[in-house]
Structure formats: C-alpha cells, structure tokens
Nucleic acid binder design. Sequence first.
RNA 1: GGAGCGGUGGCAGAGCGGACGAUUGCACCGGUCUUGAAAACCGGCGACCCGCAAGGGUUCGAGGGUUCGAAUCCCUCCCGCUCCGCCA
Length: 425
Amino acid sequence: MLDLRRIRTEPDVVRAGLARRGVEPDELDRVLELDERQRALAAERDDLRNRIKGLSKQVGTLHKEGRGDEAAQVQAESRALGEREQELAAETAQLGDEVRDLLLRIPNLPHPDAPDGASDADNPVVRVVGFDPDGYGPHQRIPHWELGPRYGILDNERAVKISGAMFTMQRKGGATLARALLQYGLDRNVDQYEEVRPPSLVTTETLTATGQLPKFADDAYSVARDDLWAIPTAEVPLTSIHRDEIIDTAELPLRFMAATACYRREAGSAGRDTRGMLRTHEFDKVEVFAYATPEQAPDLLAEMVARTEATIGSLGLAYRTLEICTGDMGQSHHRSFDVEVYAPGTDQWLEVSSISWFADYQARRGNIRYRPGGGGTAMVHTLNGSALAVPRVWAAIVETYHRPDGGIDVPSALLPYFRGSDRIA
RNA sequence: GGAGCGGUGGCAGAGCGGACGAUUGCACCGGUCUUGAAAACCGGCGACCCGCAAGGGUUCGAGGGUUCGAAUCCCUCCCGCUCCGCCA
C-alpha cells in the first residue's frame, strides 16, 4: 500500500513511478477525489461531535444544579445533532473504505535504480557463474522427469492419483534429497537468521498484509469453512509476526528464516512447465526474511542475494542472477533479483529464488512500525527471498549429478544429510 | 464443544454512566546532585487522523445497541485463563 499522504502531496512523482511499471492508474485520480471528500466530511463530523460533547457536559452540570427543565432542552438539541452526526459518520466511513480498497490495488513504486522494461525478456543478467554449455555429458542431458521414474526417486503418477495434477511425490533417495535440501538451506543461514516454524494456514488479514489479497485471491488455496488460507510462501506468516507492532529500533534488522510447504493454485498456468518438478501445487522452500530501517535495507538485499548465490554455488550447480525490470516486478516489489539455476537435462534456467525489497509497502498494509531517530513512528522496510526452493534445485541436482555409468551422486555439501550414503540412486 | 472468569497505554495494574485519554508503579527521555555512575529529587512521556498553527477528532479486544453523554450498561463475535469433554 502506498502512502496516501504521498499520493496527495506529490501525485506527479507517484504517477511517474507507476508509469515506469506500465501501469496507467486511473485509480490514482479516483483516490485523490474520494480522499478529498472523505476529509471534508470528516472535518464536518468532528465539528458536530465536538458540539455534542460540549452540550453533554452542560446537561451534566444543569442536572447537578437541579435545573432539569433547561437540561431537557439541551438534551433535545443534542439529540438532533446526533442524528446528523450518525449520517455523516456512516458516509465518512464508507468513503474511507473505498479509498483503502483502491489503495490496496495500486502497486508499489519501483526503486530509481530498477531497470526499466516491459516484460521478463527485459530483465538484465547481472551475473553468470559456473556455466559451461559444452561442459555437460550426454548422461546429464536427460531430464529429471525421465531419471526420476527410472531410479524410483520420483513417482508423480501416484502423486496424481493421490492428489491430482501438479502434485509430486519423491521416494527413497529422492525424498531424502528433498528433505536434505531443506535442512541445508536452514543450516546455511542459521548464523544470521532466527529459525521459525510458522502456521501454514493463515487468516485473510494475514494474507492481505503481504499483498496476495485482494488482487490474487485466485492463486491461493482457501479453507473456506474456517475462513483460512494455505500459505503460498513463508513470507506470508513471517511478515505478520510483527504486524500491528512497533518494533524496538535497537532490534533492527530482525532476520527470520523458515522451512515450510508452499501452496499455489497456479491458476492460469495450466499445461505450462508442468512436467516433473518444474511447477507444482505444493512444494517446500526455505525462506529468509527481514524487517529493517530504510537505511539498512539496501545492504540486506545485497546480502540475501549473495547468500542465495553462495548456497546454489556450494551445491556445484551453475546459476545466473537477473535483476527484475519494472515491467516484470510483483505488485509489492520495490526492487528485486531472481537467481536461476541451470538444469542441463531440462536445458533451462529455472528460477529458484526471488529476492525482494518491499520498502514500506507491506509494512503499511500490516501496520509494522519502528521509532526513527527524530521521534514519532515510521513504517519499517521489509525484505524477503527464497534461500532455497526445493523442487527446481532437486531437478538440477538429479540431472547434473547423473553418472555416466548410471546412478546419481550426492553433492558433497549434502553428504552429512544422507545417512552415510553417497548416492541419491 | 460445555461451564466459569477475563481482555485498559511498552509492561504491570486501577477505574465500572458525567472534567477519564484514562490514578499509580515499572520502563524510557531530559535536568539537579556526583570525578563518573547508582540512589534521591524535579520535569517529560501512548498511538492514529485532520489542520500552517491554535486546536479538533478517534482510540480502553472487534462490531452493533441503549443514552444528551459509554472504558463503564446490553447484544454478537474474536482471543486468553481455569475446570470438564474430545484428541495427534
């Protein structure tokens, strides 16, 4: 959510920022218009309340002095004002709701340094590490959806029987690999990040704070009977840890990490990338998250990117990092980077991490504040990223570590998690 | 799920129809004293909205209602605690 005051005071700056994202916000004018009416009505309403208060005090005094007749007169006057006040209050509240609804749908402003662009085709590649297109043997050019069933480590046929399309099931070394990656992702970050095991079902309010609602309701699984939603990422509950709180400034930055299952309906992507482990309704992920001051945020963003890159690199996988252009950014993003791993069998760069700085956009939705130096309160900045998304890394490992003589090796970094074995299959 | 009791400022905890935005303690900030600190004493101190300001309004779990007037009374819901039931 953008700062309404900012929209009011520098509408041109806001308009220009949104234009960079290719958004033509008619909503902006509507917000300004409604806001102005809302404030005018609120002033009128407050004035009435003030007068009613004054009259009520008179009534009390008159009664005490035994002047009942006069009191009755003032009461009648006050009652009349009260009726008008109720009307105004209802109108004002409704306008306020309308403004907020509109505000929730307006996306964040991009960072000045974020590259301009229209779509994901315009995302500049920032780094490519460990990639040699000619460095892979024919045994590594087999996609994991063939290797998986061949070695009995991926059984999607039965997953579909159990839960339907786009659900997966790993078995034996494949299941171990999935769990090992989760543990490894946590272990890589435990030096700086507090481990959290948050709830997987959350309230509407929690899902709104992160920006998934109201705009992306179709993408989330809902448990309608209990008015709960399945989290699409741990970012959702982590962002709400300090919702409606004022964080002690000395504690910032506050860093959290969580390994959770993530649930996504993937509405609108039916039939795309549905093979193997590329796109699934349920997957595991280690997420890192931080609350920070605006001053701390840029360094934290860089740190999160560097950590994710190092984790992927430590698994012996090739990766590249892209900066997301204005036309491809998520609605809450201020600046973000993607890390993609190279899967030789699939012969694709697979997005395994999206690391984003939200500025105060989410904090405003969630009312998450701190006390800056000069006094008063201000919204914190939030950042988050995937430290390790399991399925696609799983795919890249299975393909990359397939041996010429058959079998799949365990990357050396994961050996401690494999109960003494050095083979996935 | 049933019964009982509760939800008040960063925390603790008063108030239970009329000067209550709310006594008080702790915490926090400033000052006096001190070589410095502690103690003691003095002063300040919730958040949000509108306003250049003066000031006004909101806010005592949430939402309704009664009343001239609600932290205080009534209703619904949410959350917590204790006991019972159920349960991995």
